[in-house]
Design a protein around this nucleic acid. Structure first.
Lengths: 247, 247
DNA sequence: GGCACGGTTCGGGCCGCGCCGAAGAGTCCG
DNA sequence: CGGACTCTTCGGCGCGGCCCGAACCGTGCC
């Protein structure tokens, strides 16, 4: 009576992410960098032996990839598709029901809501603003699915991002990625990744702690000029008080 | 040291799919129809009480939606996004390692590989052929992300599928969906769903058992004429022998 | 060589989860 | 009303998972 595939394959795969420790590993790795096994163990608060076991399973399941160097075991997400998958699942998961307990945690949360990397592209308020600006500027078009326009190609070239090399990859040029703080789409795909990297190269943005991204004063000016982004909206998260409170 | 969100939210959500029975429910519901709790229980081979418990959790988790009618509890996927998520996870999951044991199962597998619904759009060999034909005909364009072209809009209108109503939905017009038998993309999104429904309305396709789809003789002619699909490639799965063996 | 360090392997304990059957609540029908 | 049916609730059982600490291996440094 069981027509076709039973759920064992899917269940086994989903089980990889169904453990808080393993899920925490994947979320940490969403910053796009390679972590050592020990770093991940400490970040998750488990013994090294526990982490080692989990990592072996995640690698075997195709979610993570490893690279051994000397006595270190470097771990990263297997490919951008995994990052997308994890982000989508995280976006659908009910909030961890853990309101920030400490001031430090609250300010970290604000910094992440302001701007962060989502694997290799920009997310948070900055990511959504960028996405919207690219649409109004005609770099992107949404009349029939999200697509990069001809003017978009030249605009990118002017910014120092040639599009042709990006076409060579198997990755879609542009793609929606649901932002879990803004609950609205931001730009992913090869172009999203290239833009994120280019902004860093140009010094418009710099990496903060963890996945956090900060916009430099020069970046604020440049984004206002090239994309018409309101510098006021790009103001960094209020250190105290003046910013709108967020539940 | 744990910057930002821990993995509990994600893990709890993934755990919903990490059980073979629950995963089987979701896979069965990928046919886009509403099943009763009892039907799902029988299909999965568990007691009604067990299924009831699982379904309650899946509904609470936002993966499924229920509708109570009299003494029946109708269950369907919560929204198309869930279908996409489940398909993506299933596509990445290693094959269930269950080569078909019976002749009946083998022929069912062949029928599904030939053509099936993927929630509400077409998948399988037919789905991939359709996707490719739409690209070569200029209905879709992939030069910068997957998009519906202007000629595509008129082509759809000629087929009796007005695009304007589709724009009203929050759903993307066109979207890639990775086919788990062909390992290549087919067309999803609002247009993919509309095309699938239109083909059924026109009598070009009919539903088989489960998620299987069959192409009628009239449908073969029509698809050849309007899209240039080779009728030979649309031949139904060989009942025995002559078809290419598939691992 | 000696030591510190990162990672892995192994054994054991514990908690949670999935399963069932039996009993009960609600619905439809004769 | 009484019977058939669907679904739910509740105990109880058993397996499998997650975790740790201790011992072990390999690397890099002094």
């Amino acid at each position: 009576m069981t027509t076709g595939a039973d759920g064992r394959g899917l269940a086994g795969f989903a089980a990889l992410l169904a453990d808080p420790t393993r899920a925490g590993f994947c979320l940490a790795l969403l910053d796009g960098r390679a972590w050592t096994a020990g770093e991940l163990a400490r970040a998750a608060g488990v013994a090294a032996s526990t982490a080692s076991d989990h990592l072996t399973r995640l690698v075997a399941g195709g979610l993570l990839a490893e690279e051994r160097q000397g006595r270190h075991r470097y771990i990263r997400l297997a490919d951008p598709g995994v990052a997308q998958l994890v982000e989508e699942l995280a976006a659908r998961a009910p909030t961890p029901a853990t309101p920030p307990r400490t001031l430090r945690a609250a300010s970290e949360g604000a910094a992440l809501a302001y701007a962060r990397t989502c694997y290799d592209h920009l997310a948070g308020r900055l990511g959504v603003l960028l996405h919207d600006a690219l649409l109004t500027r005609g770099v992107l078009d949404r009349s029939g699915g999200l697509a990069l326009t001809g003017t978009g190609v030249t605009w990118l070239a002017g910014l120092g991002v040639p599009v042709e090399p990006l076409r060579a990859t198997r990755r879609p040029l542009v793609r929606d990625c649901l932002d879990w703080t803004e609950r609205r789409p931001h730009l992913a795909g090869a172009v999203g990744a290239a833009l994120c990297g280019r902004f860093l190269d140009l010094g418009w943005t710099v990496r903060g702690t963890g996945r956090a991204i900060r916009v430099t004063p020069a970046g604020r000016d440049a984004l206002a000029e090239t994309l018409g982004l309101d510098p006021a909206l790009l103001a960094p998260p209020a250190s105290r008080g003046s910013g709108p409170a967020r539940a």
